[in-house]
Design a protein around this nucleic acid. Structure first.
Lengths: 199, 199
DNA sequence: CGCGACGTTGATTTGCCTCAACGATTGTGG
DNA sequence: CCACAATCGTTGAGGCAAATCAACGTCGCG
């Protein structure tokens, strides 16, 4: 994959979400680096400072957390056309609490902390752009919270399928269970019940 | 309560969280309005556009959501030294999905959408300040999500008490249950079990 | 005073977890 | 290239956490 060819995708993302002037787009693009990561490679680990934020061109990654009982809690799946990164660790440049790792070979455009700060300094419009971007993530998190607080596992899974129809074919099922906040066994049972109903 | 007297509180908030130059603080303060609301008054309702964001000086409010089954899900309690508002509705100026209402007589410093846009335009530093503020909320939401996904009701309640020791004395208990994502009856049972253990 | 909102308690049910056993698939080292 | 291990998903039995339903006491307020 050639970096120049990836500009249209980035442009398309912003056109659909946070329209920004062509020159700003170009500046951002220039500050970013095309990175290819094999499957199962880590972007951030707990204790380390998250050094990049990335726009995913192709592939898929997940963000997860290991709680006190020692089990993994998947916070987020990020695939094509999504951003990833540990917002808290990146912006405060503090050790992360999260794992982020690829689940497929993944191509992404990354930006480092320094480059981003540089953008803010040189083109204040980026303060606004990234403020709007984080507001988008905020709305997303809010939905997820309400869903976990008030819906049954069954419904959450259905909702997940509607929203991410291709993800179940791309990632191990127990990661999806941990995203939904249920045990792998129980997700399996939900699935088999659904299959019976359909026939 | 006199508006001038409230400046130190606002200053104190920023000193502790997002230090900002004195002149910027003054600009912000001037753009804000001191508002007093009686208990049980609404700031936003679903369908309306959320017109203000507010810093609470005294009192307490809650943000909630009514789901498909018709029950209330409390997303957030905001008391002294916290901000409230429907970020999504406010920044996009779109109809809100949330209710926000006071639970006590509440004094707050409010800022309207227009005034805030004006601040952004006149003092670009505010883009940064509010970007940092929303990152703070983001981290908060993230914690809450992880907690709901992976901890027992018992533990979540304990955590709530540690973090907001005064709230149980100030708001009806069933609102707390809905914040924790459990039924009012079950919260009552958790409490009585705790009381027995203590004796 | 009497009503409605709130919290409590107990009985019952249900959603989800844990544990254990078992195939199927994948991957890896000899 | 095969053998064996490791990982993954499924299934069933049993148990526990939390919901639901119903009855009741209390309080604040019109």
């Amino acid at each position: 994959m050639n970096k120049q060819d990836t500009l249209p995708k980035l442009k398309d993302f912003f056109d659909r979400n946070i329209p920004l002037p062509e020159p700003a787009l170009i500046r951002l693009f220039e500050a970013m680096e095309l990175v290819k990561l094999p499957s199962k490679h880590s972007i951030t680990q707990p204790g380390e400072i998250c050094t990049i934020e990335a726009y995913i061109l192709k592939g898929i990654a997940r963000t997860y957390f290991i709680n006190e009982q020692g089990d993994e809690v998947t916070v987020h799946f990020a695939k094509e056309d999504w951003w990833i990164g540990d917002v808290a660790s990146f912006t405060l440049q503090r050790p992360s609490l999260l794992h982020i790792e690829t689940l497929e070979e993944t191509y992404m455009l990354t930006i480092s902390y320094e480059r981003k700060e540089q953008l803010y300094a040189e083109y204040p419009i980026f303060e606004r752009i990234f403020r709007l971007m984080i507001q988008r993530t905020h709305a997303f998190l809010m939905n997820r919270l309400v869903s976990v607080l008030s819906e049954s596992a069954d419904k959450r899974y259905q909702y997940f399928l509607d929203r991410y129809p291709d993800v179940p074919q791309r990632v191990p099922q127990h990661y999806i269970a941990s995203y939904l906040g249920i045990s792998p066994e129980f997700l399996s049972k939900i699935r088999s019940k659904k299959a019976k109903l359909r026939s």
